[in-house]
Design a protein around this nucleic acid. Structure first.
Lengths: 169, 169
DNA sequence: CTCAAATCCAACCTGTTTACTTGGTTTTCA
DNA sequence: TGAAAACCAAGTAAACAGGTTGGATTTGAG
């Protein structure tokens, strides 16, 4: 179980999906804006999530992504291992032949830790996260922004910000 | 608390030091051979370990490295954070301003995990590892090889291996 | 006293991964 | 039929891993 920002991005995006379950499918554009992740990077992550059977995409206007399963049946560990294909960063990460076909000095230590991390992340589902108070709080703030964008109240602010960013480049 | 092979190398090397505590100082050459880590890479790691006050080196022939403290007073977490200077791989690794100065959706999740990992690694010392049966077993095997090298019993094998490796290059 | 063993130090290098961009093609709803 | 969306392929800058090269300095052992 590797822990990288890649995995974190994936979990954040999946959580965004879970938060909007029941509504129309969520576009990557939407997630990109909300979570501040680049659209094409999201595309790459979601290609893997789709291949792992965690999400399903529907094309065309009105399309987007939905969770492929109930959110209570998707663990954080699953999401992370879907995007972080283990590029054998091992020596002792894996399967006990780290030193001349024998276990190295610290083999047990790392596999013990690895198990603990996996257990932790495997014991938490998207469904559970959705009900956490701090997640709800952040989601409500984001929803307000989203709503503001739709009704046009924040549009001028965004346009101005874009202009400023444009000038900086 | 980042987890990389770099940290693992450091812990393995420090454990080698702990195992030979009381004898003459351990040379990096020695560790390089035993743990199959390149000498110059070890030098870089030990530069950091020394700056963090975990080891002390003595120069000249007969020199080498010793633990700067009792092995029971050195936790695994300390060793890892000595070599893995946190190159802010964050977004949520650290201090809560991951998204527009606010916490991002998954902030609590990652800090909770991070704490768990730290607690685990901070609760284990080199001294404790030294007494684990599986470590003792591996250490004894390595000690046999070391002894064999000193008495010359394995010298011919090593020389032959060197010749083969030379041919391959 | 000298030489070799060792630490110490700085620079460079190759390959991989991360996070992202560019520039498309395809599907499908409005 | 046009545009919104997923899909796809390639390239890229920066960082990091895990070294190598080539020394300099210190110091014990012969």
């Amino acid at each position: 179980m590797r822990l990288t920002t890649k995995g974190r991005y994936a979990v954040t995006a999946m959580l965004d999906l879970a938060l909007q379950e029941g509504k129309r499918p969520v576009t990557l554009q939407d997630i990109a804006v909300n979570q501040e992740i680049s659209l094409s990077y999201l595309e790459q992550l979601f290609a893997k999530l789709r291949k792992s059977g965690l999400v399903q995409g529907t094309r065309g206007p009105g399309g987007g992504y939905r969770l492929a399963r109930k959110m209570d049946a998707i663990s954080i560990a699953e999401v992370i291992s879907a995007v972080d294909e283990k590029a054998d960063m091992t020596r002792c990460g894996g399967n006990a032949d780290c030193l001349d076909g024998e276990k190295c000095l610290t083999h047990e230590l790392w596999s013990e830790l690895s198990n603990k991390i996996f257990e932790f992340l495997n014991g938490i589902t998207l469904g559970e996260l959705v009900h956490r108070p701090e997640v709800i709080a952040v989601a409500e703030r984001q929803e307000a922004v989203r709503e503001g964008l739709r009704t046009g109240r924040l549009k001028t602010v965004v346009v101005e910000a874009d202009a400023i960013i444009g000038n900086l480049k």
